[in-house]
Structure formats: C-alpha cells, structure tokens
Design a protein around this nucleic acid. Structure first.
Length: 870
RNA sequence: GGGGAAUUAGCUCAGCUGGCUAGAGCGCCUGAUUUGCAUUCAGGAGGUCACCGGUUCGACUCCGGUAUUCUCCA
C-alpha cells in the first residue's frame, strides 16, 4: 500500500464512522505564544479540551503536520543518526469532543489496524495505565483493560507507568490515562525466539509505538489536585511515517515511499549512494528529513530568520547544508533542487506545497548561498586562529567565538581540527556555551503566579468592534515577573473593549476606572488560549469593584486607520503587480504599518506611485466598512475573501470588506475609508528571496509627514532667498561648491609650495645638520605636510615648526631618519621637553612628533630651547 | 528579548598594543607591448575610514551613543 492510499484509508475509515474530516492546521501557531510550532496532533484543538470554546462537530479526524526539534525524545541533533526520528511528521488522529469514549476508540483503532491495514494480530501489543502510588492515588485504568480484553489475549496487554501512560498537556488542564498500541516488526524467527512484550517501550527500533489513545477524563487544577471532567474527550495520534514503514514491510521510515524518492534525488545530485557508509547515510537521512520540515514551514508562511520560529527553521536548514557540505561534498546550493520531488510526493495531500513551490525554492536557495558564505568566512577565520595557536589543541573559548559570533558550526570545527591533527578543547567550549545560555535565561526568566479568581463567570467577551468603553468585572488575575519589565499583572475581565495583539495588529492601551474614581493604566493587551489578558503595572486597589474599561481612542483610531490601509495596500499590490502577490506577514502599529508580500523584484518608482494612488483613490471613494462576524470559512472563501495561512478548522470567521477588498480578519478597522485621510509609502525593501516589504503611514502620521516636509521646504526656500526652484538652486550651489573646493585646494597647494620654498631657503647648516626652527601660520595638518615634503627634499634635516592656532600652541618636530639614528635624537622626546614651555605635552615617533599646549606665549622660549639639541 | 561581532576604494578585504602623510588584490581609465584565446609592463583616477559625540598634542585604531548587517542563545 503506498502512503497516499494509507492516508486516504485512514480518513475514509473515520469518515464512515461519522467523523468530520478536516485539513491539517498550519504548522505555525499564530494565536499561541507558548508554542512555536504545532508539535502534536491535538494542538489545533486545545481550546476545545480546555473548555474555552465549543467544537462545531463532536467527531473529527485529520492528518496534522507536526514539527519537533526539541523535547525529551527528539533532539534536532539526533535526527538522521537513527532510522526512525523525524523533525516533520504527520500525525493521524481521531477526536471526540464530549462524544464517544474508550469503548469506541479502542474498537475502532483495532479494526483499522488489523482489518483495514491488515497488520497481523500477533504482532500487536497494547499498554494500559497501571495506576499510581503517588499523591494523585490514581487507580488502574480497568475500563480500558476490559475493552482490550475483549479483542486480544491478556498476555499482550501490558501495564504502563504514569510516565508512559498518563498524559498531561502541561502543569494544569485536562489530562488522563492513555493506551498505546505497539507493533513488533522484527523477522518472524526473532519474534519467536524473543517475545516482543519485553521490548515494548525500550527504544527498540523495530518494536515501536504507532498509536496513542488518550482518554481525557480529569482536570489538573492549579493546586495540583485532580477533578473529573464533566465532558470526557478522546485525543489520538498515530505516527503516519511509522505506519507507512510497517505497512510497506520496511524497517525504517526512511525506506518508505515517503522518503525513497527524495533519497534517490539526493543520490543523483551528490553522486553518493545510500547504504554505502554510515557517515554518508546519516547525511542523506538528515537532508531528506530536513527538506520536508523547511519546505512545509515556508509553505505555511514561516520564513527562515534570526529570531523565534524563523530561527528554528534556519537552524534546521543549516544543519542539512552542513551535513551535505561535510559528508557529501556539496559546496554549492543543492537543497532547493529537492523541492520538486517533495512536491510530487506530498503536493496532493498538502496543496500549499504546490501553491508555494517557487517561493520555497527561492527562499531555500538564497539561504543556502548566504550560509555557504558564512562557512567560507569561518574557514578562513579558523585558519587564522590555528596559525596563532600554540600546541595542538584549539582553545574552547576560541572555538565558541567562531560558533557564537561568526556562526561557524562546532562540528565542522572539530572535523577540520581532526583532519589537521589538532584536537578541540570540548570542555572549554561547553563552558562558554553554558555561560551564554545562562545569560539568555536570566534575561528572559518569567515567573508566573497562580491565577487568583475574583468573580465567577466566563471571561473575555470582546466588545471592541462596537465600543471603546465598557463596564467590566474582573474574573481573575495573576502576577508575572520578568527581568525586563519587572512586576506586571495580567487581568481577565468578563467584557472588554480592548483589542488583544493579533493578526499583526498591536494590542490596545487605555485605562480602568473604578467606581470610586481610582484609575489603573492598561499598558498592553494580549491573547493567550483565547483569553484576553490586560497587562498593568499595578493591581487595582479594589479588585471586586465595577470598572469602566476605556481604550485609548487616539491610538486605536490610528491603528485602525493603518489596518484598513493595510487591506487596501494588499488589494492595490495584487492589482498593480499581479495575483501572485500574497501576504507573508504584517505589522499594524499606531504610527506606521508594515506589509511583507511575495514578489520577485524590486518595485519601480512608477509601481510604487501607482500603488499609492490606488489606495488613495479607495480612500477618496469613501468606502464604508461592511463586516460579517460569523461566516463559515467556506462561505467566506466563496465570496472571494482573501484566505491567509493561519485559519484552521472549526472557526467561523469574520470578514472585513471595503469595496472590492474582502479579507478574513479579526482586527479593528475604520468605519469608512475616508477616515484614513491619506496613505503614503515610506520605504520598500527586500527581506528574503522573493519577499518584499513595504512600510507606510496613514492618517495623523501622514499629515505630520507632509506638514514637516512643507516646513522644511519653506525653510529651505527662505535660505535660498525665496528661489522658485529650490531643487535647481541647490544643485547649482553644489556644483559651484565643488568647483570652488577644487580651486581652493589648488590655491592651498600653491601657497604651501611658496611657503615651502620660503622655509627651505631659510634652512641653515651646522656640523652637517640642516636645521630650521621657525614659527609659522599653519594648522597641525599643514605643518605635518610641509615637514614631510621638506624631509623628502633635504637630507639630514632637523626641523621644528611652531604655530599659534586659536590660542593653542602647536609644535612639530621632524628629524631625518638617518640623522635621528646617527645622533641618537628622538623627536618624541624632544617635543615632550619643548612642550613644557607651552604648558603642554606630546609625543610621536623618533623621526616625527607633535606637541600641543595652552600657552602660545611660550613659543619663542621653546624654539630657543630647541637649539640645545643641535 | 539577551549576548557577541562587523561597517575602510566600484567589489573582496589588510591595517598588531593610538603617531609608517590610509594599503593590497580584482575591477576601471590612459599608454606601450601582444593580438594564439583569462597576455605582460608602465602610469592614473577613485576613500567625510557607517554616522554623532567624547578622551588625547595626535583617533581608522580607545570610550559612549545611533543606524545597518551578520551571528549565537532563549
């Protein structure tokens, strides 16, 4: 069975059991600050399990793309070393939100594996939670055990510990026991000799867990205690890559049809065959795995970058390049060539790959180029460092510096060292690394106190589309502490007009007014798990009071204006440049907006003007806001709304329309485009291959921009004596200035030449020394110039020049090098001595030195004293 | 968010602990040579040493700030 069939059989199977089949949510979690990427099938449904939202359909099944780069079982550095770990994987899952429970889940899982997939029953083992003796005092999961007992012999039902068989999402929230299904795919002879039961959960590469069935039945409270959930849920996850491995009769997921075509392509490109040597095999697996992760991330809008999620993607890509570089001899970009074969394998199940193919290729190629450049630079730095190294061990700190500052991978460093007969001070490196980690940790440490419940009730009804003021009661609050901000409070209200940061738009600021008149300022508003958190510096004195929550109107107005302008900009770009333009990110602040989009070239002056004019024309049309807050995604798309990545199943969405611009958007907007007043692009730049960025301003900021420009122009005209064409006037001035400057330079040269001749004629000779002690009218640079010129023309020269420049005394001493050496003279020393007469000091080299002082009156004395050196 | 680093000629970079009147290679211009294929030689133009401020007799060099870029950690 090929992978495509397996995936579709799973979905069809659950469709027949009345499940709603939904598409995979995007890899990048837009609304969850606690997660960079979806790392488990249940992430997109978290709010249903937490009870914050209600699922539209109680039974759902899907395949969810997941990305794991860290965690107890999956360290990025380990992927590829073995034959079964992956960064990106698909999780097949079926879900029940308060609907069916253990009986159906167990029966269906068994039916699917044995009957649909045809896995032999005696290769399967299951585990059941054994209970716990700790403070939770949990009983064994007898219910699950009984269901399993009906379908397989008790000898194949194993007891699992709390660590393996009790699943928790975090410190708090829904949790429960789980049952895992393991499959033993060792050859029959081995299976007979050594029963698989003993190998379950022992990290054996061929006795593996393929399906985890989680029975959510408890809620872990803040104090650590457990209470039964009113509604029980099912959360299952089956590793798709492992399932393919099992059903295709191979012993590694890398040998399944999900990976083989990619590996073949790598062989073709590199000329290295898979299966020949351990080193190259690891490299090939790393590359095959990582190209998937990187491509999917880019398809979902996550570009490589140097912070957060973008940095994770960059690291994954660079790790693959590194392996290619070191073990397959790939010294020029190659990863981007794999995107085509990946799209062929998975493009059907994940159409975003097909849609974004060109962008993925461009971005990866560009990243490869820039990293190869970093490597080249690092190689020469390493060479240099080694030249300065005594002995045969490279200092750990130096290696860390190469890594930390110049991005040169440590494993490459140690590889090269080994080749050249050096060794690496690993301990020193680790120490520096730890210090760096500690620094970062200390800077970003956040302490969150427990939530304090104030009033009962549902939280976070958002009223901000309609009003900027509302009566609000505090539901709960907590204290958070960070090194950066110090103490802050997070407040959740029953109602709020405050818009939480999201969709690129910044959170609202404003204040709370208690009934007794006390005011508390709200510094920012954010969203977490669909709850709206208001951030304050202080807690209101009376938390139980009735509050009036008031949003800062001016800030909100400006932000709304920028947000609407962003939509119009998006529309304008598609109109002017073409429909390949897609939003890749946006930031809507109160004083400016930023919009990133896919486009292959720099925008010309004309295009920018056209875009600006288009937006301003929509503003002039006075288009009213037409919003619809409850539209099913499908309908919205059918109406032509621009779908961005980040939407997931189950949402009814809000559409925002101004004339022909329709977008899915949760942000706040102006009531009419006329409120924007004016739109002005301030910059256009590249941020990655195939991605451009436009920054712009609108409303008050645009007005200020023009006011300031006007003021500057008026001032300029004033200076230019009311010239009608200041541009011409200034360029004329510039030309004139350049001409004058040249002329002046010429004159200076002449004068210096004359002065030089004059001085030269005054040089006296005494005992073979040509000397001159003279006060001149030159600045320090001029004296230096003359001194060097004379020095070049006159042998055995001893020259001291003095000058009085604006009340400061300057001395310059030049002694021909031969003379200085013969007579043991030192200009630096002389000048220091003479400096005393002008109340100053100085120094320099033996043949040339300068001094400066406060007393020009001492110049004659200094010159007199200089005679002593002759 | 926190650290480290870089910014010098059109390009790639050197310039050690402050003082050698800012250099190299490539490219460009001029001339000669050659015109058997990345020729050779001679000469030349081109730099507010990112920007602002400070220390100093003197700053490309030291200190502080700003901007941009790179990089690591979270």
């Amino acid at each position: 069975m090929n992978s495509r069939e397996i995936r579709s059989k799973f979905l069809t199977f659950f469709k027949e059991k009345e499940h709603k089949i939904v598409p995979s949510a995007p890899l990048v979690m837009k609304d969850d600050p606690t997660l960079l990427f979806v790392n488990a099938g249940m992430n997109p449904f978290k709010e249903f399990f937490l009870g914050i939202a209600r699922a539209e359909h109680p039974r759902v099944a899907d395949t969810q793309k997941c990305l794991r780069v860290s965690g107890k079982h999956n360290d990025l550095e380990e992927v590829g070393r073995d034959t079964y770990h992956h960064t990106l994987f698909e999780m097949l899952g079926n879900w029940s939100f308060g609907d069916y429970f253990k009986a159906e889940t167990i029966a269906w899982a068994w039916e699917f594996l044995t009957e649909v997939c045809g896995i032999s029953k005696d290769q399967l083992y299951v585990t059941v939670f054994e209970g716990s003796e700790d403070e939770d005092k949990l009983e064994m999961d007898q219910e699950a055990y009984d269901h399993w007992k009906k379908i397989l012999p008790e000898s194949r039902i194993l007891m699992g510990s709390k660590k393996d068989n009790f699943w928790e999402m975090g410190d708090q929230g829904p949790c429960g026991p789980c049952s895992e299904i393991h499959v033993d795919i060792r050859p029959e002879a081995e299976r007979k000799a050594n029963p698989g039961a003993e190998l379950v959960n022992r990290d054996h590469p061929q006795v593996v867990e393929i399906w985890n069935l989680v029975f959510m039945q408890y809620n872990r409270k803040a104090d650590g205690s457990l209470e039964p959930l009113p509604e029980k849920h099912i959360d299952t996850g089956m590793g798709f890559e492992r399932l393919c491995m099992v059903l295709q009769g191979v012993s590694s997921s890398y040998d399944s049809d999900l990976f083989v075509p990619i590996i073949r392509e790598i062989e073709t490109i590199s000329g290295v065959s898979y299966g020949k040597a351990e080193d190259t095999d690891i490299a090939i697996r790393v590359i095959a795995d990582h190209i998937r992760a990187v491509s999917f991330a880019i398809a979902d809008g996550q570009l490589p970058g140097n912070t957060g999620a973008g940095y994770v993607i960059r690291r994954i890509l660079r790790r693959a390049i590194r392996y290619g570089f070191s073990f397959l001899g790939m010294h020029s970009p190659f990863m981007f060539k794999l995107v085509d074969v990946l799209t062929r394998i998975m493009g059907e199940a994940f159409p975003e790959l097909k849609a974004q193919r060109q962008l993925i290729v461009n971005v990866i190629r560009e990243e490869e180029n820039s990293f190869l450049k970093t490597l080249e630079q690092g190689l020469s730095l390493l060479d240099q460092t080694l030249k300065g190294t005594q002995g045969k061990t490279l200092d750990g700190e130096k290696a860390f510096e190469l890594y930390d500052t110049f991005g040169f991978p440590i494993d490459l460093t140690s590889l090269i060292l080994r080749e050249r007969g050096y060794s690496l001070d690993q301990a020193g490196f680790e120490k520096s690394m730890q210090a760096q980690k500690d620094r970062s940790k200390a800077a970003s440490e956040i302490n969150r106190d427990d939530w304090v419940q104030v009033h009962q009730g549902e939280g976070s009804q958002f009223l901000g589309y309609d009003t900027l003021e509302a009566e609000a009661r505090l539901i709960k609050y907590r204290k958070v502490e960070s090194a950066k901000d110090g103490e802050r409070y997070q407040l959740v209200f029953d109602n709020t007009p405050f818009y939480p940061e999201g969709g690129g738009q910044v959170g609202d600021k404003g204040y709370l007014e208690a009934s007794n008149g006390n005011v508390t300022y709200i510094l920012d508003t954010v969203k977490e798990n669909n709850e709206i958190l208001h951030i304050t510096k202080n807690l209101p004195k009376d938390t139980k009071a009735e509050f009036r929550a008031v949003v800062d109107e001016q800030q909100r107005k400006r932000t709304a204006s920028n947000h609407t302008a962003t939509h119009l900009l998006h529309q304008a770009l598609r109109k002017v440049l073409g429909t390949h333009v897609e939003q890749k990110g946006s930031a809507v602040h109160s004083n400016y907006l930023r919009f990133d989009f896919s486009h292959f070239a720099k925008l010309s002056e004309e295009e920018l003007e056209e875009v600006e004019a288009f937006v301003n024309a929509r503003i002039a049309e006075k288009l009213p806001l037409e919003e619809n807050r409850q539209v099913p995604v499908k309908e919205a798309l059918a109406a032509g709304a621009m779908a961005l990545f980040g939407e997931k199943y189950g949402d009814t969405v809000r559409t925002v329309r101004f004339g022909k611009s329709i977008e899915l958007c949760g942000g706040t907007h102006v009531a009419n485009t006329a409120d924007i007043w004016h739109f002005k692009i301030t910059s256009e730049s590249a941020i990655a291959a195939g991605i451009r960025r436009i920054e712009a301003i609108s409303s008050d900021a645009a007005r200020d921009f023009y006011l300031e420009a006007g003021t500057t122009l008026e001032a300029l005209k004033g200076i230019l004596k009311g010239s009608k064409d200041p541009i011409k006037a200034v360029s004329q001035l510039q030309e004139e200035n350049a001409g004058l400057r040249k002329e002046l330079e010429q004159l200076k040269k002449e004068r210096a030449g004359n002065l030089k001749e004059d001085l030269r004629s005054q040089i006296q000779e005494q005992a073979g020394v040509n000397f001159l002690l003279k006060k001149v009218d030159l600045d320090a640079a001029g004296m230096k110039d003359i001194a060097f010129q004379l020095g070049g023309e006159v042998d055995n020269l001893f020259l001291i020049l003095a000058a009085d420049q604006g009340g400061k005394a300057l001395l310059t001493c030049y002694i021909s090098k031969d003379l200085a050496a013969d007579k043991g003279l030192n200009a630096g020393q002389i000048v220091r001595e003479l400096g005393k007469h002008i109340q100053g000091g100085g120094g320099g080299q033996p043949f040339f030195a300068t001094a400066g002082g406060k007393d020009p009156g001492g110049i004659p004395a200094a010159l007199e004293a200089a005679k002593a050196y002759l």
